[in-house]
């Protein structure tokens, strides 16, 4: 059954251009529908500006859609009262591309990770420490990292911290918004493999936003291609070479070779 169902969602932004203040309407999402089955990962690929991140933000409730509904665990998010929404928010977490801007530089790791826990639960000091250590170990860090500050970590390590924070409340859904795009290749592979293990271990569902088809093939069960605000096609990620849309074809053709013998020639 679907954990998340986005139905016919549209969203436009209004830009004021120039000194005259003429208002320009920019459609970011056009009648978008997606379904995410519980325990699976849906890869959302598309070029920059295609509306991938806007869709992620609407699912999280950070933006309101102009039209359409978001159903999460059988409830229409737009119809919920703020109290109900608050308890549902526990179930959905997010990991952003830029880990440094998504943590408070003045918080140590323990404070970063336990902040969502403390929002929902009453934890004693020793419980908080215990939870922190457990979460750090789950994401491949150690208890010694709990007292460190964000600037003491590399990008990949800090991304592990934000993942630990995201899974702290045992959510059902995680929005992964380009979680590995700014990391170097070795670290990318480590973080993707961590995400794959966590998905199996905690039966998580991912909405994985990326422009990297190789990462989609690795982590996602289904792939949906977005182009200019609309979903142009979707299929099982193991069949992604069968993608038809001209934009998808371009995306496949632009994949870097894995060996110099497969080099693209002029």
């Amino acid at each position: 059954m679907s954990l998340l169902s986005v139905q016919n969602v549209s969203k436009s932004y209004f830009l004021r251009s120039g000194w005259s203040g003429a208002v320009q309407c920019v459609p970011a999402l056009k009648d978008v529908s997606i379904d995410l089955i519980s325990g699976t990962c849906l890869g959302l690929v598309g070029e920059s500006g295609a509306g991938k991140s806007t869709l992620g933000r609407i699912v999280l409730g950070l933006e309101q859609p102009d039209r359409g509904q978001i159903w999460f665990q059988g409830q229409d998010l737009n119809q919920l009262k703020s109290q109900q929404l608050r308890s549902l928010r526990r179930e959905m977490q997010v990991v952003f591309q830029d880990s440094f801007s998504s943590v408070n530089p003045r918080f140590n790791v323990k404070a970063i990770i336990t902040e969502p826990l403390c929002n929902y639960l009453k934890l004693t000091a020793s419980e908080a420490t215990e939870q922190t250590i457990q979460l750090l170990e789950t994401v491949g860090l150690t208890a010694a990292d709990a007292d460190k500050y964000p600037h003491q970590f590399s990008g990949g390590q800090l991304q592990r911290v934000t993942i630990a924070r995201a899974i702290a409340l045992k959510p059902k859904l995680m929005i992964l918004d380009e979680p590995v795009s700014s990391l170097d290749m070795t670290t990318q592979a480590q973080i993707l493999s961590l995400l794959l293990n966590l998905k199996r271990q905690f039966h998580l569902s991912y909405l994985f936003i990326t422009h990297d088809l190789a990462a989609v093939a690795y982590l996602a069960d289904r792939v949906a291609v977005m182009y200019k605000g609309a979903i142009v096609e979707s299929l099982n990620s193991s069949d992604f070479t069968k993608l038809q849309h001209p934009y998808s074809q371009q995306l496949i053709a632009a994949q870097l070779p894995t060996h110099p013998r497969q080099r693209h020639r002029n």
Partner: peptide, 16 residues
Amino acid sequence: RSLLAARLTPRLGEKR
């Protein structure tokens, strides 16, 4: 060798 092993692309299409 670890760099080469970290490539995702060879796993494209493979059943996980």
